[in-house]
């Protein structure tokens, strides 16, 4: 649909990053699905959680282009996760220390 080779080159120049990002996400998803389907080692959930975290970071940093944004937007992208951390940590302080 994109006629001239010039246009194709331009298109590829702009689409390279999204395509690579999607590829990376698919690979990581593959890892997680594979781990989830086979459960190779006990406590594999730790690995799965880490992979999911990297996927989230990839979406933020590349798909949502946080890396091109000013510091303020970077702060806003991160602060929510910090607050989620507060919610989880302080609640778990209760649940993990219940007798």
């Amino acid at each position: 649909m994109f006629g001239t080779s010039d246009e194709r080159r331009t298109l590829w120049r702009h689409m390279r990053e999204p395509v690579l990002t999607a590829g990376a996400l698919l690979v990581m998803l593959g890892i997680n699905v594979g781990l989830g389907a086979t459960l190779p080692v006990p406590h594999v959930w730790i690995v799965e959680l880490l992979v999911a975290a990297v996927m989230v970071a990839t979406i933020l940093w590349f798909s949502m282009e946080v890396r091109h944004e000013p510091p303020l937007v970077k702060l806003f992208a991160g602060i929510g996760f910090f607050w989620v951390g507060i919610l989880f940590t302080m609640t778990l302080v209760d649940y993990l220390s219940r007798g």
Partner: peptide, 24 residues
């Protein structure tokens, strides 16, 4: 709008392991 769309994607990227994968 793209930000919103990517974020729905992000939420699912979190929901999928949380619900389907981690608890297997």
């Amino acid at each position: 709008f793209g930000l919103y769309w990517h974020f729905i994607d992000l939420i699912w990227i979190l929901a999928f392991p949380t619900l389907y994968v981690l608890n297997r």
